[in-house]
Simulated scan of single mutants.
Amino acid sequence: MDTPSGAPKPPRSPFDDEDADLVLRSSDGVDFWVYKTILAKASPVFKDMFTLPEAHTERQIVKLDEDAGTLEPLLRLVCPVQRPKFASLRQLRPVLAAAEKYMMPFVATGLVDTLRTFIESDPLDVYAIAYSYQMRDVVVVAARQLLKDPRLASPRSPPPEFDTIPARALHEISEYLRRCARAAVDAVEDWRWMVRENEAHAVYVPKRGGVVDQTKAWVWLVCTDAHKHENTPEIEVFGPALLAYNPPRWWWDYIDRLRRELAIKPLGHLATDPSNIGLSVKKAASCSTCAQSALRELVEYGQMLSKRIDAATAEVCALMTVSIAQ
């Protein structure tokens, strides 16, 4: 049966129990029959709203500002009924706002895992929402996701939370991305590990003089094809002795491409990108010293470097200080 224009709509399952003693009426006229005891336990705001009905057979009616689309999932999170499912952040936002309004912090806590499901598709929005509701762990995970494309941190249409969260939230995410990019590039430019921190390709330097053993060194460090070194930078490694190297152009091309990519996306897996490795190995094929082992060693090097890059950005993440508004 149709409801007369302007009249409240009948309650719908599961908020239609006959013995319920309270009616919450949404802004669009939908009634939710609920229990005062449950609502009073869940929210001090609701508790203060309640008054005794004039007669035992009457239900108290409380009109709310939220529409039915917001109230139903909120009540499903409060009452012992099936939990709601959220298809988008657009559905989640008003529920979080209502929970904050009615002083139900456990609702936001209970929605953390739901919010995490949107990190991959909407990292900046999740970052802004999590920052608003002091979900530090989610803030950090969302920031990590933004590393995959830092340009997402400067969208044409920023999240609505950017109108209310402190300016430092924007500064922190920009600074985080900048530091991660710097840490990733620094990891590439730390030449010491190629010589000293790697057993498979370590260079042995006697403590009291003697001949430096470079038989295990990376092929590009001991390349003897002189014309491949024209106009290439030198590498100096300080340790028990000063070691100087002049890697060939094909290796520097790999490093230069990687540095440019990491400045935009500081992700370790870029070090193992087949297209980047392939371009350099193709050039190495003309080098009499490097041709035979360039592919094998550059793949191995990329795998090791990938871990170092991710470890460097993870350290930045661990040190990330998010000053969530109190």
Score class of each variant (00 low, 15 high):
residue 84 P to Q: 02
residue 84 P to D: 07
residue 84 P to Y: 11
residue 85 K to C: 01
residue 85 K to N: 00
residue 86 F to K: 00
residue 86 F to M: 04
residue 87 A to Y: 02
residue 88 S to N: 06
residue 88 S to D: 02
residue 88 S to M: 03
residue 88 S to H: 03
residue 89 L to H: 12
residue 90 R to M: 04
residue 90 R to Q: 13
residue 90 R to W: 01
residue 91 Q to W: 00
residue 93 R to G: 02
residue 94 P to I: 11
residue 94 P to T: 13
residue 94 P to S: 05
residue 95 V to L: 06
residue 95 V to D: 07
residue 96 L to Y: 08
residue 96 L to P: 07
residue 96 L to G: 04
residue 96 L to H: 02
residue 97 A to C: 07
residue 97 A to V: 15
residue 97 A to G: 02
residue 99 A to M: 02
residue 100 E to V: 08
residue 100 E to K: 14
residue 100 E to H: 14
residue 100 E to T: 11
residue 101 K to W: 10
residue 101 K to V: 03
residue 102 Y to A: 06
residue 102 Y to I: 09
residue 103 M to P: 00
residue 104 M to Y: 00
residue 105 P to G: 01
residue 105 P to E: 13
residue 106 F to D: 10
residue 106 F to A: 12
residue 107 V to G: 12
residue 108 A to W: 03
residue 109 T to P: 03
residue 110 G to L: 14
residue 111 L to Q: 13
residue 111 L to I: 14
residue 112 V to F: 04
residue 112 V to E: 15
residue 115 L to S: 09
residue 115 L to H: 11
residue 115 L to Q: 06
residue 116 R to Q: 15
residue 116 R to S: 13
residue 116 R to F: 00
residue 117 T to E: 13
residue 117 T to L: 09
residue 117 T to P: 02
residue 118 F to I: 01
residue 118 F to S: 05
residue 118 F to C: 02
residue 119 I to W: 03
residue 120 E to C: 08
residue 120 E to Q: 08
residue 120 E to L: 09
residue 121 S to A: 15
residue 121 S to C: 04
residue 122 D to Y: 08
residue 122 D to N: 13
residue 123 P to W: 02
residue 123 P to V: 08
residue 124 L to D: 05
residue 124 L to E: 01
residue 125 D to Q: 13
residue 126 V to F: 07
residue 127 Y to K: 07
residue 127 Y to M: 14
residue 127 Y to D: 08
residue 128 A to P: 14
residue 128 A to E: 05
residue 128 A to C: 15
residue 129 I to N: 01
residue 129 I to Q: 06
residue 129 I to C: 05
residue 130 A to S: 15
residue 130 A to K: 06
residue 131 Y to T: 10
residue 132 S to V: 11
residue 132 S to L: 08
residue 133 Y to G: 09
residue 134 Q to F: 00
residue 135 M to E: 10
residue 135 M to P: 13
residue 136 R to V: 11
residue 136 R to D: 10
residue 136 R to K: 13
residue 136 R to M: 11
residue 137 D to C: 05
residue 140 V to N: 11
residue 141 V to T: 14
residue 141 V to P: 01
residue 142 A to D: 12
residue 142 A to W: 06
residue 143 A to P: 12
residue 143 A to I: 12
residue 143 A to T: 04
residue 144 R to L: 03
residue 144 R to P: 00
residue 145 Q to D: 06
residue 145 Q to H: 10
residue 145 Q to M: 03
residue 146 L to Q: 07
residue 146 L to H: 01
residue 147 L to Q: 06
residue 147 L to V: 01
residue 148 K to E: 03
residue 148 K to Q: 05
residue 149 D to Q: 00
residue 149 D to Y: 06
residue 149 D to N: 11
residue 149 D to H: 04
residue 150 P to Y: 03
residue 151 R to V: 05
